[in-house]
Design a protein around this nucleic acid. Structure first.
Lengths: 227, 227
DNA sequence: TCCGTACCGTACCGTTCGGTACGGTGTCAA
DNA sequence: TTGACACCGTACCGAACGGTACGGTACGGA
């Protein structure tokens, strides 16, 4: 194995350290084209020749930049995650009850908006399709890049609510996952299966659904909840 | 298009009527072999030549029975669903509160057990991977065959609980989806991504998790819940 | 015995795709 | 002007796969 030492992707070790791996503008153009192909055609639509044609680049450059086809897929996930890089802002240190509730609902709507977006769905489909293959890493990559960001932002939000006296819980992660389940239910899987999910059609529908979910969450974890 | 009128799969219309499509024992053997290939190798492992070799049958028979490769995939989903055919038993008409709670927990453990099983995960991965491709139907098929069965059983259980005075809710489907979300959270997606989910490792872990989820469900929909 | 049916195993074909090689072009620096 | 560099476009190769055709075998009924 020659190990070209191209820009550094899909190395065998890859520790927990994110190791930003910035892409050049040209590479980002190519990855954008790849995302376009993926969204409308699925994984099979990403062929090296097809991507080179769609991005007006040469196959040789693809292999120089990303190593091989799997490297392209991994780079797509890393790139998309780098775009979504949500501002994990502390959102001010103390919010009254009603605006805090609005913060939670805003998080929920953001979550629903991102996860029902075509790019997110396509990348999740890609990672899931590759998950069966041994040693694919794409799933880990997606979880590490995508979910952890959401999780950390949500957990910060929840702990702020607890400090402010709006919420009561022991395990932050557990509370977050409950909120996640109340909001998403099985919508994510159904969306990935191609089903039509009414609650994700319009902003209005999403807002009302999230409001109900947050309402349930407060009945379970609100400061005035029994037990 | 000659339209061989083989055993009747993946026709263009396919109404709501299930239309059982029984398979011959030989065909079931082949589908079982295909499931084995799928579980350990993903979709790419199901090649016509490979399946013929693994099942000791000829490619010609595959095409006679299932039409083409996509027909094999659809048949696999239909076959697996026909195996899981859960007994949607009424479970007796009136259960005291504690045993009814046990019924709910039993349902939850069954749900978790099925969805975390390798065959279910592999088929869901398959359907999701095919969902991007236009006109794939596999997602619809999986939803129709799998989810609807679970959904109808659960809704019957919930309505029995309401009739018995254990639960209070307006929309049965909504209550069911809430229960679903409380139990599964995002475990299904994470499992499909290949992640390690502790709550699905042992029967003990599943039982305790489901017990907590059902507890939360009763706090939201129990007869003694406020509002 | 003969024939039809169902099936297996193998060989074969056309296409697609991943990956490599090569010639040609623009650019920047010496 | 020269050369190094990065890149594009095209051509090419080998392998794998979907799908078809064909010869051979077991069986069951006339």
């Amino acid at each position: 194995m020659d190990h070209h030492h191209h820009n550094a992707h899909h190395d065998a070790d890859m520790e927990g350290a994110p190791l930003d791996e910035a892409f050049t503008p040209r590479q980002e153009e190519v990855l954008e084209a790849a995302l376009g192909l993926l969204v409308e055609g699925g994984e099979r639509a990403i062929t090296t020749a097809g991507l080179a044609r769609a991005a007006n680049c040469s196959k040789e450059s693809l292999y120089k930049w990303f190593g091989d086809r799997d490297g392209v897929l991994a780079a797509m996930i890393a790139y998309q995650a780098s775009k979504v890089r949500v501002a994990v802002g502390g959102s001010g240190p103390q919010r009254p009850a009603d605006t805090y509730r609005a913060d939670l609902e805003g998080f929920g709507v953001d979550l629903l908006t991102v996860l029902s977006g075509p790019a997110s769905l396509a990348l999740n489909r890609l990672a899931i399709g590759q998950a069966s293959r041994e040693g694919s890493r794409l799933g880990d990559l997606l979880v590490a890049r995508g979910r952890r960001a959401v999780s950390s932002r949500a957990k910060a939000l929840l702990e702020a609510g607890r400090r402010a006296g709006h919420l009561r819980f022991e395990d932050t992660l557990d509370a977050f996952e409950t909120l996640y389940g109340l909001i998403l239910r099985d919508m994510h899987v159904r969306l990935m299966l191609g089903e039509h999910v009414p609650a994700t059609n319009s902003d209005r529908a999403m807002a009302t659904h999230v409001a109900r979910a947050v309402d349930q969450f407060f009945r379970l974890y609100g400061a005035d909840a029994q037990s």
